[in-house]
Amino acid sequence: MDIIYTIWLRNLKRYIRSKSRLLGSLGMPIFLMLVLGYGLNSVVVLPGMEQGYIGFIIPGIISMSVLFTSVFAGIQIIWDKQFGFLKETLVAPVSRLEIMLGQTFGGATTAVIQGLIIFVLSLFMGLKVSSIPGFAIAIVFMILIGISFTAFGIAIASRMDDMHGFQLIINFVIFPIFGLSGALFPIDDLPLWVRSLTLLDPLTYGVEGIRYGLLGTSQIDPLICFMVLSGFTVVMVMIGSHLFRKISI
């Protein structure tokens, strides 16, 4: 436990110190929220959405910011590998699993903080939270997205030698995961093949879960969301720790 805490602590210290990264990763979500939210709010009418299109996408934007922050946090171990710090951790008499879990929880924590910042900002944009327990449910889903996708990032980073493949991962893996998740559009009326794709995307269940928590309505049963996302989290942590164990430097 001490070891996991130690590594978690280091991640948090680094996060708090790097103001530019903190602000930089808020840029894109805020931009999307303003442009899409205000831009399409009057054009897009969603039946049953009292808070309009902007209310609809806020959970999606929160998921996005948790997703990106957590994947980055996981992939960060490539820097540690390149700048040598990973060696210091790996040569200590601690198990790789502890290191991996510390890194995962550290990344998830920063990702949830990042999501909460977006949440607070969206309160100013008119978001009305349905209930306090609902808010707690949203937090749970944010934590699950954070843990699973940090582990996902660690799994990728364990297989990469340097940052050259980074752009590839962002464009061909992370953006599709975000785009297909139903963060920006309702999934009920999609053509069948697109709908199947969105249902294969684990983030869909995270977005829907947060949407249920914040707005009180969702297109997928929140219990199913919770089960699918929990399952995905467990699998990702297993894959991540397996690949991390095999890193050699």
């Binding site: 280091r10 110190r17 040598g84 060696k87």
Partner: peptide, 11 residues
Amino acid sequence: VFQDQSLDEEL
């Protein structure tokens, strides 16, 4: 003490 540096520069 490794050949290459292994400190965390942000700490």
